[in-house]
Design a binder for these strands. Sequence first.
DNA 1: CGGCGGATTGATAATGGTCAATTGTGGTGG
DNA 2: CCACCACAATTGACCATTATCAATCCGCCG
Lengths: 194, 194
Amino acid sequence: MSGATGRQIVSVGAGIAMRYRLLPDGGRQIIMFLFPGDACNVNLYSPSPFDDSLAAVTAVRIDRINHDSMLDVLRVEPAVNAGLWAMADEQSAIIRNQVTSLGRCDTRVRIAALLCDLVKRFAAGMGASAALALPITQSLLADAVGVTHIHFNRVVGEFGKMGLVETRRGTLFIRDVSGLEDIAKPLRSSTYWH
Amino acid sequence: MSGATGRQIVSVGAGIAMRYRLLPDGGRQIIMFLFPGDACNVNLYSPSPFDDSLAAVTAVRIDRINHDSMLDVLRVEPAVNAGLWAMADEQSAIIRNQVTSLGRCDTRVRIAALLCDLVKRFAAGMGASAALALPITQSLLADAVGVTHIHFNRVVGEFGKMGLVETRRGTLFIRDVSGLEDIAKPLRSSTYWH
DNA sequence: CGGCGGATTGATAATGGTCAATTGTGGTGG
DNA sequence: CCACCACAATTGACCATTATCAATCCGCCG
C-alpha cells in the first residue's frame, strides 16, 4: 500500500527459481530450488548475511511484500509469525538434509534423493501429475548435487536404463518414484530408526 | 513461570556440542558445531521436522527455556523475536556455506574453511586466545567436512608441515589463521565480488 | 603393566573429474 | 525449405582425489 518500496520479502509466486552461489573458479553450487510459496529472504529484523544469489530456472512470477506492511500485519495477527517460522524451519530441514547428502552419500544416492525431494516439493507447488516432468536441465541438477554435469549424465542414464527416469532436452521425466526412493534409502535415516 | 515443563528451547550455555545425523551404513555427518549462545531448536510454533541428533563434544552446560514462558516474553518484548530471527538467519548462513563447501570444494579447502569458521565462532563464545586450541578430535572434524578421518589426518598433517596448525591428542592448535584463510579462499565468494 | 582411544602410515581400489569430441534438437534468418 | 547456430546431452579415454583395508604407534588412565 505504501508507495515507497523499502526492504521487501521476496517469494516465488509461480515457476521454479534457485538459490545458488558462484565460486572464484567459475564453479556454481545450487543451494536449493525454490517452488511456488517458498520465500527467499525473510529478513524482517536484521540485514542478515545474504551471500548467495537468486535466479530463475523456468519462467517465474515473483511476489513481493514490503517489510513495513508485513510488520504491521504481524502486530495485528501474530499467527502469521508462526507461519513464517514454520517455513524457515522447513527450509532449514531441507538444507540440513542436503548437507548430509553431500557429505556422506555417493552420486547415485544424492541424485535419487534430490529427485525424490524435488518431486515431492514440486507436487506441493503445482499439480501432482505435472510434478513428474521436471523442467530443469541436467547441468542445473548436477550443480545442486555437487557433481559434474557429465557424470550426472552417466548416472541418470543408468537410471534411465533401469526405467526410473526418462530424459528429453531440458526436462527430466520421473517414471518410478518408489524406485528412486529405494536408491535414496541410505540417506533416509528413517530406515534406521524404523 | 509455569511449573510443568512442556516443550523447551534448548541452547548451549558452555562448552561445545554438535548437531549430527547417522546413516544406515554407520556413517555420520556433523551438520554443525554449536558454541555457547547457539540454540539448537527454536520451534516455538510448529513441531518442526527435527530429524537429526545432538551430542556433546566437550563437557557442556545446557540452558533450557520453556516455550510458554518464552512466548510470554515475546508478547511483552517483541525485540526478542528479532533476536531469535537473527540467530536463525546466522545459523542458516553457516549451513548454506557448508553446502557450498561440501558440494564444490576439495578437501583442503573444506578443512581450511571449517577451521577458520570454528575459530571465529569459538572466539565469539569463549576467549579469543582460547579459540586457537580447538578441543575437537580429528574424527569429528572429518565427519563435519565429509571425509574419512584418515584422509583428514593426511591433509591436516600437510597443514602442520606448512606451520598452519599443530595437533596434539584430542585438540588441534591453530597457528596461522590467515594462512588457513588463504587456503579457504576458493570458498569465499567475496574474493569474487571485490 | 595393559588396554584403549586417537593418530599415523602404507598399499591398493574405486569414485568422480578433466579433456576432448560428437550427436541431437530446436530456433532463426535467409 | 534449408543452412546454420546455440545449447543440451552423450560418449570415450585418461587422470586425480579420496575411500578402504590393514597395521602400527603413542599418550593416558586404571
